[in-house]
Design a protein around this nucleic acid. Sequence first.
DNA 1: TGCAGATTTGCAATAGCTGCAACTTTGCAG
DNA 2: CTGCAAAGTTGCAGCTATTGCAAATCTGCA
Lengths: 211, 211
Amino acid sequence: MDHVETGLRERKKRRTRWAIASAALRLFAERGYEETTIADITAAADVSPRTFFSYFPSKEDVVFTEIDDRLAEVAERLSDRPPGEPPLETIRRCVVDVTEAIVAEHGEYGAVQVRLILERPGLQARALQRLTATQEEIEARLHELCPGIDEIDAVAAAGIAVGGMQAVVVHCRRHGYEPASMRAALDRALTIVEHGLGSLTALTAPSEGAP
Amino acid sequence: MDHVETGLRERKKRRTRWAIASAALRLFAERGYEETTIADITAAADVSPRTFFSYFPSKEDVVFTEIDDRLAEVAERLSDRPPGEPPLETIRRCVVDVTEAIVAEHGEYGAVQVRLILERPGLQARALQRLTATQEEIEARLHELCPGIDEIDAVAAAGIAVGGMQAVVVHCRRHGYEPASMRAALDRALTIVEHGLGSLTALTAPSEGAP
DNA sequence: TGCAGATTTGCAATAGCTGCAACTTTGCAG
DNA sequence: CTGCAAAGTTGCAGCTATTGCAAATCTGCA
């Protein structure tokens, strides 16, 4: 039971939602986020301003269209891992999926969405919040995968994993989104997550000073 | 040149700022955040509504009064570490300081602030954003401490460290703030940060299933 | 005592968001 | 077909946060 409903009603709703979202993203890209009002968006989408709020709870939420679905999808996929796989491998897979889902282009306006989120503090905050939600999702799966796992361990593992993810996002923000570079950063971060900061000799040696 | 200015002007400004902040926090505690308007706050603080915005850029910012100062203070303290100390130790120290600064009670309304931040999604998002800022702060210090460190390593290390911090915050949110328990969670998280997720046998063994 | 600069304030306007009630459309039974 | 009830859309009024602007006050220092 997903999006297979054939009713005219459903189809029309989906179309309207898309009309609003794409109008919004297009306008955001053209004149900027703050510079685009709800009225502008609804005018472009040819619906009443009031209607906007029956599709999205707030202006900010339009920006996250699809991204949320994508994230949820990834979280679900986590449960479909081969039963014998070591949890750590599962986490790795999960982090890779989520990260790529976040960074990769989603449909036509993906680039716009990413740029907006990275630029507008408000949107950035919202994104972090969703990332935190994902973190709890990960932790829940961990408890499923390793029934007896210590709670602190699970929380910490999830937290650290997400921290690694964020590291990649930060890296991308600075150096752009070439898949290759991103992959490298992701692998590096995951290795560190796996072996700990203690594996970085740069960190265990006394800080500069006496030779 | 900090808060030593003796001018009547300075003193009055400081007093007003405090009046607004404490009125706000008190009201938030009494009737809730959303239920308190700027007008309510300024009435209680005995200033004009317009004045509020010359002290705080937004309603949300009042909640973070002092917390920001505290965080900045901690970040600064990072540079005062003994020169020969291994960076990893410095990080540990830093994480402990920041975490305790976040969780500990700040002044009279500390508990209110923490509760609000944890409850209101908007404030939570804002807090995460500030945490991210701290993360970048940590990274910058890392580059100072280990001049040649690989950028990805630095970003990842900072990200993971903050992830560990968040883990502790999550833990506290669930189990309360008894210092002992928090200390334990913090230590555990830091150990994991240091030795990696690979050190948790629960994660490296194949997930349940065939015995 | 009086001025120059800083603060405070009132006023008006914009924009996001919500509740409500009237109006339309759609799905379906008769 | 036809008509009804549920679902969806719209306009309206209203509330709150936030900002620009200019008049009114206050403070520090002659």
